[in-house]
């Protein structure tokens, strides 16, 4: 049995995109927007300049989102087999900027032997994409795109970073 979150993400994207894992942040956003059932979006205007939001995303993603976590799942795997499965999941983040915009994209990949990905980004499927657009000199519109299996702590942390209310790191597991 593979990690619940990874399997769920792959399955969701298979359903969303006709058996293809989105290979770019833009494709991921479109998939999320097209799926009312699995996709989630969040939009807000924060009273912080784009430069400040960008600096926060860079600093925090470096420290908090380029990590490997270990997840153990205990349970009944059918056929009377009860046991524990350990998964090693790596997270990678990328911050890109263009005039008036910033994008934070996070990918996650199950490194457990026996886990295979067909297509999609090299560092694993996207788990969240965050776009920041300057509204004016003092405020920024922030849009989050994710799916229902994305770690709630990750969504919460990125929201806090954008708002400047908390600079902690998410535990990343669901």
């Amino acid at each position: 049995m593979k990690s619940a979150s990874t399997v769920a993400q792959i399955t969701v994207f298979a359903l969303l995109c006709g058996c293809a894992i989105p290979s770019t942040p833009l494709a991921y956003q479109q998939s999320v927007k097209q799926s009312a059932l699995f996709g989630r979006t969040k939009s807000m205007v924060v009273h912080r300049s784009l430069a400040v939001v960008t600096a926060t995303f860079r600093r925090q993603s470096q420290r908090c989102l380029n990590k490997t976590i270990f997840v153990e799942t205990r349970g009944d795997f059918g056929g009377g087999i009860v046991g524990t499965v350990a998964n090693k999941i790596a997270y990678y983040s990328t911050v890109t900027t263009s005039p008036g915009k910033v994008q934070l994209a996070v990918e996650s990949k199950d490194l457990t032997p026996g886990t295979h990905y067909v297509g999609g980004p090299k560092r694993g499927p996207y788990t969240i994409v965050v776009n920041g657009t300057a509204v004016n000199r003092y405020s920024t519109r922030v849009n989050l795109y994710y799916i229902y299996t994305t770690s709630s702590s990750l969504v919460s942390a990125v929201t806090d970073w954008a708002r400047g209310s908390d600079f902690g790191c998410p535990v990343l597991a669901n």
Partner: peptide, 17 residues
């Protein structure tokens, strides 16, 4: 090291800083 165990879900996760 932060270890979080969710008993109902039967999962535990570890992350470090």
């Amino acid at each position: 090291r932060f270890d979080r165990a969710a008993y109902l879900a039967g999962t535990s996760a570890e992350i470090t800083d």
